[in-house]
Simulated scan of single mutants.
Amino acid sequence: MSEQPSPDQVSFGYQEVSPEEKTRRVGAVFSSVAKKYDVMNDAMSAGLHRVWKDRFVRRVKPRPGEAILDMAGGTGDIAFRMARHGAQVTVSDINQDMLDVGMERAARRGIEGLGWSCQNAEELTFADRSFDAYTIAFGIRNVTRIDAALAEAFRVLRFGGRFFCLEFSTTQWPGFKEAYDAYSHHLVPRLGQMIAGDAESYRYLIESIRRFPPMPRFEQMIREAGFTRTKVEPILGGLVAIHSGWKA
């Protein structure tokens, strides 16, 4: 694994690149995998991502009429779940190809009332204090400047608003960690090639998990953005974690 990026570089998997290059490359990754993204999620997690997302939405507790921004919401998995509770959900993603897939899925399922907006998490165009909740699932590790995205999340939330993030981390369970490392590094790219015709994009997605800050450090970043009552809920020993915070 490479060393930490220099101040004027960021990590793209195990490589160090300029911020602009990372943004471009991440965009290319998701444009490539958009149409097979949900099928690959099922294949990679043996369907567990559905359980994690259900648990995540239960923690968010979406309520009828409240405004929720689902950032990096692409194909709509989280938004569809929250819309069932009557929340007014705006699905945002930096990648229009992912949003197009989400809109097609919503139309097929007859899900109406969702807003769709192509947005950069680091520079949202929404006004201050526009939302009651901000959610981001399996997306923040792909943001070029995570601190900027957290600051924007804080800005667009109303006072009393809540932040929830579902993201991969590093499991602390002995034995399972080693088994998962072997599976993810060797088998996931092969699945990516078989199902999506793209091994390299899935190699990056696995590497991006390894470069993401550990749970205590990411919780600290959430606090540094201004959030209070921060909490981390590890799943499978930390393989996945639900992070949360409130705007006081």
Rank of each mutant, 00 (worst) to 15 (best):
P5Y: 13
D8L: 04
Q9A: 08
S18F: 11
E21R: 04
V29D: 08
S31W: 00
V39I: 14
V39G: 02
A43L: 06
H49E: 04
R50G: 01
K61P: 00
R63E: 14
L69D: 08
D70P: 00
T75P: 09
G86S: 03
Q88K: 14
T90Q: 03
S92G: 04
D93M: 04
N95A: 03
N95K: 08
D100A: 14
D100W: 11
R105H: 01
A106C: 01
G110F: 08
A121H: 05
S130Y: 02
S130H: 00
Y134T: 04
A137P: 03
F138C: 01
G139K: 08
I140L: 13
R141F: 05
V143F: 13
V143C: 12
I146G: 12
A148C: 13
A149F: 12
L150A: 13
E152V: 11
R155L: 08
V156Q: 11
F159H: 14
R162I: 04
F163N: 11
Q172R: 14
W173G: 06
G175N: 07
Y180T: 11
L187V: 14
Q193F: 15
M194S: 12
A199M: 03
S201L: 05
Y202S: 03
R203L: 05
Y204F: 15
P214A: 15
R223K: 15
R223V: 05
T228Q: 11
R229Q: 14
P234V: 05
L239Y: 14
L239G: 07
V240T: 06
V240W: 11
H243S: 07
